[in-house]
Design a protein around this nucleic acid. Structure first.
Lengths: 174, 174
DNA sequence: CGATCTATCTATAACTC
DNA sequence: TGAGTTATAGATAGATC
């Protein structure tokens, strides 16, 4: 009978740790990457923010997201503002005794900064290898079509021209 | 009376378009940025993925997120795989009549690729200007403290060492 | 595989303090 | 301003096709 079939157990709570089963991991990745990009899009539209994102999947697929229209414009305004920050800093200097406490945190921050710089260096290497062209040249026509479908879906979701790109490379081992 | 007070109307449906009121926009940005970073973290942990993300807020604050431990490792394995893609492509070439249809899409894809490359160039400029150091030097001690708190919160949420960084600059006009 | 469904879980808009 | 609350919208785990 139809109503004898258990329709669905629904969305069970899951622990945030690496999913063991590779197939489940891949499915979850696909769903959550989609969700992440959608959230990023919404943030951009709702709050007039700018997001650039690079995601490497467990199976070494590469996904990129960006609404980068005018990063340089934002950069310029940021550079203009930095001159004013100095005034604010000198105000903070009046309470000198708090500095020592914060100095440790500052040191810790600098260490993380080193890691971040290392990350960005990696991104630069990625750029220099010209993988944008390499990868699209090596994409199969089918994959390219799928890629365009993804873009069009996202476009219609946002109901506006959007600079979003999704690249998928074939799984050769599954 | 207490039960006369309307507790909350809850989460109303909202249209995805720029929020007019600046204060609301800022609040929504803060909440949703937090949510976006959390989602990115979960994706990394659950699926063993790698995410690097840069967010510019409407008020020109800068937020970064990354789990970049070994991007170069992933890059290497990616470069190794690309040689095999050519075999797959030659298989697709057997059905030649489908190519013309897809060529338009290919052209369109290349155009978007140009935009993406422009974006990455902007990121490179950002890198060359050494804003990592510039900005932390210009951060007030208070902001730096807040930054460290954010990192520690995220660390405890993930319950593991994590390469995540959040930078906030003072609002001078509010 | 990918698409769909559905019950749940999670994120969050509006509100309060 | 920032931190909590609540109810609802939205995301998604597991199942099915």
């Amino acid at each position: 009978m139809d109503n004898q079939r258990k329709k669905s157990v629904g969305h069970k709570k899951i622990e945030i740790k690496k999913i063991d089963k590779a197939s489940n991991r891949q499915v979850t990745f696909s769903k959550r990457r989609q969700g992440l990009f959608k959230k990023a899009s919404e943030l951009c539209v709702l709050c007039d923010a700018h997001v650039a994102m690079v995601v490497f999947s467990p199976s070494d697929k590469l996904f990129c997201f960006g609404k980068p229209n005018n990063i340089d414009t934002i950069l310029n305004s940021y550079l203009n503002e930095t001159t004013e920050f100095e005034d604010v800093n000198s105000l903070d200097n009046s309470s000198t005794y708090e500095h020592e406490e914060y100095n440790r945190q500052y040191e810790e921050a600098l260490k993380m900064l080193e890691l971040e710089k290392k990350k960005l260096a990696d991104v630069k290497i990625l750029n220099k290898s010209d993988w944008w062209n390499d990868s699209i040249d090596d994409m199969s026509i089918e994959e390219l079509q799928q890629f365009m479908v993804s873009i069009k879906e996202l476009r219609s979701n946002l109901d506006q021209p959007m600079l979003c790109r999704t690249m998928e490379f074939l799984d050769l081992d599954e």
